[in-house]
Design a protein around this nucleic acid. Sequence first.
DNA 1: TTAGTTGTTCGTATATTTGCGAACAATAAA
DNA 2: TTTATTGTTCGCAAATATACGAACAACTAA
Lengths: 104, 104
Amino acid sequence: MVGKKAFTSKQKQLARLAKAMGHPVRIAIIEMLLSQSCCYHGDMSLEIPVAKSTLSQHLHELKDAGIIQGTITPPTVKYCINKENWSMAGKMFEKFFQNDKNHG
Amino acid sequence: MVGKKAFTSKQKQLARLAKAMGHPVRIAIIEMLLSQSCCYHGDMSLEIPVAKSTLSQHLHELKDAGIIQGTITPPTVKYCINKENWSMAGKMFEKFFQNDKNHG
DNA sequence: TTAGTTGTTCGTATATTTGCGAACAATAAA
DNA sequence: TTTATTGTTCGCAAATATACGAACAACTAA
């Protein structure tokens, strides 16, 4: 039990982002938001094969991970990608896949 | 219940890869393998703060997802990144983050 | 106020994940 | 054969994740 290191915050953050993307429903949500700039729960509900309550849960998880944002525009809720965080996430994954430790 | 589309195999594959990366232990494993070319269970066990049986489970998951490979070299087992699959995964994530539908 | 629309939260059930130690398997060494 | 080393699998417990419909909240329109 000596010498074992705790996880770094980068490792934890990357894992958190990956986990948030680790479900087909959430991949589909992100793709819709990326391709249409913004979308409404109802729109997504027509395309994605889960109950609206389940969709809401997945949206909540993506929001929690910082990947998307929601804005209330009664009676609907408009979701969009959190562009700043999405860009950061993209860079993290890029570095990870390149294992590029010298340009960070 | 009309008009809902099943998930594409790309969506499912990306979600599967993301899910496999969605845990700090598995991120740490991949980082070790990327930086040292190859590693042994025992080496990783000294660095990563989980029981050896738990580590074995995580290695199994990464193998299942196609990210790593294991070769028995008695009495140890040598793990390495499945470079071909890793490269493909990198490209999938790259496209996803760029939402680049015109160059695939 | 009463309906209607949209989306979230609640309550519940089931499935999966994570984790550990014990037991096991495979091999090498004595 | 016995012992030691390495790593996996088993058995179990606890925590999370997934999913659904019902109920609810917030707002708009009649």
